[in-house]
Design a protein around this nucleic acid. Structure first.
Lengths: 250, 250
DNA sequence: GGCTCATGTAAAGGTCGTTCACATGAGCTG
DNA sequence: CAGCTCATGTGAACGACCTTTACATGAGCC
């Protein structure tokens, strides 16, 4: 009860206080540095200032730690996608693309989480809680796709929202994992991963018949099914992509 | 030079004969079973019936073995993509889709190679030969995209072939790595990975303005001004998808 | 104060990756 | 065939890691 003990508790608390949290943080840092494969249980213990056996009081084994991190990652992922979707404001297509960018941003800014979630070799169904978290995150994309599908122009058959969601997911994951992270980012590209994904999604949506030319409706005409591409005269607002979803057409 | 020695040579040749090849094969099997992360150098040595130190006569370290496998994988990958592309026969769009399916088939049928190539955490530029092999494989996709881009319908701006190639690659990799391999394949889907990718690519191509409805024109009004590729009289390629790129429209 | 349980430690066994000194046999040279 | 040399494989050893086991310790509760 002495002051010192109180002090110790503040520093390390009960036998360190919250080793579990400390280990998660340490592991996160290590994974960010060296990848999920390179991360070692012993290192995390060392980093937390604790013996190599201590972590086993909090995690059955190394995989369970990894799985915990992946789960936490899916939760943050879900939060970011939810925020990006913003319930479809200001319009569905814009919000949808924002979700795509949020996906990439997460992959780029949280490499450790992304690695644990998708590249650590964890079996998808390792942990029911993990699986549930993963599904909750995916459901954001799915819900967005649902809203988008409901907007299908009259002329076109309405695409299944589930399929759209899976397509978008695969695009985002493909771009993230091939071009946007770690060593893979070194591949030389004609455009940034964000632009690449944005163009990909836009072209895809156009393929479904959605109007993707969302700029101040300078030249009236409500979008007919599959409107022609950007008119050559438009003023190219900053967010817009002149000349179509890709850069300057040849 | 006795009979026994000749026999031994037949079995193991000079000090085993071709340990290098045996190690590559062993590693391939192990990776297929347990993933690139789980594969161990010592195991490969054991499987080849050789001491744990022997592999070091043929590979600088474990990573070099992995890198060799990845390189060989890219070579086989290139061969399969080349065969699938078949120089764009019978028509560009059909051949293009066949390349997509070949991509998935490779990922499914050669999980060990795919794993070493894309999921082993090897730095892309680890080995110049590896990087070159990887580029050669990608160039097949790129060449196919080039041909496709050249067919851009007059009304549309011509999409950069490089971008198209990157898009297709990301779709194929995304689908393969999320849905088509190992544990990930357990995710329950409304359609097979092949169908998923086929639909995705078709929708994408339609978004670029390509005619993707290569069937006897059932319920017209589809392709805008576009020189149709295969003559519509040709006998319904087996890959045809009734009702649009996805299944029955709702 | 004493009990109990969660939490941490030390030690040990097993596996790996890797290195090093050494063995061995293939193929050449004379 | 003798002998040399070099590629190839072995055995032992080191350090790191994962994991288990027996033991220590201190928090919280009666």
């Amino acid at each position: 009860m002495s002051w010192r003990k109180e002090q110790r508790r503040a520093e390390r608390g009960y036998h360190h206080g919250n080793l579990k949290e400390a280990l998660l943080q340490a592991a996160l840092g290590l994974i960010a540095e060296k990848g999920a494969a390179g991360f070692t249980f012993a290192d995390a213990a060392r980093m937390a200032g604790v013996s190599a056996a201590a972590p086993y009081r909090h995690f059955r084994d190394r995989d369970e730690l990894l799985s915990s991190i992946a789960q936490r990652g899916f939760e943050q992922f879900e939060a970011r996608l939810t925020a990006a979707w913003d319930d479809g404001r200001p319009d569905t297509v814009t919000a949808f693309e924002r979700v795509g960018r949020a996906y990439l941003a997460f992959a780029r800014e949280e490499p450790a989480f992304y690695n644990a979630m998708f590249e650590s070799g964890l079996p998808v169904d390792a942990n029911p809680a993990l699986q549930a978290a993963s599904e909750r995150a995916f459901n954001i994309i799915r819900a967005a796709a649902e809203r988008l599908a409901a907007l299908a122009p009259p002329g076109m058959p309405r695409p299944p929202a589930m399929m759209m969601a899976l397509h978008i997911w695969s695009m985002a994951h493909g771009v993230a994992s091939l071009f946007s992270r770690g060593d893979a980012a070194r591949r030389k590209l004609p455009m940034s991963p964000d632009e690449l994904l944005e163009a990909e999604v836009l072209i895809y949506l156009r393929g479904l018949g959605f109007p993707t030319d969302r700029r101040p409706p300078a030249r009236g005409a409500e979008p007919p099914p599959v409107p022609p591409e950007a008119p050559s005269g438009s003023g190219v607002p900053p967010g817009g992509t002149p000349g179509g979803p890709w850069g300057k057409p040849k």
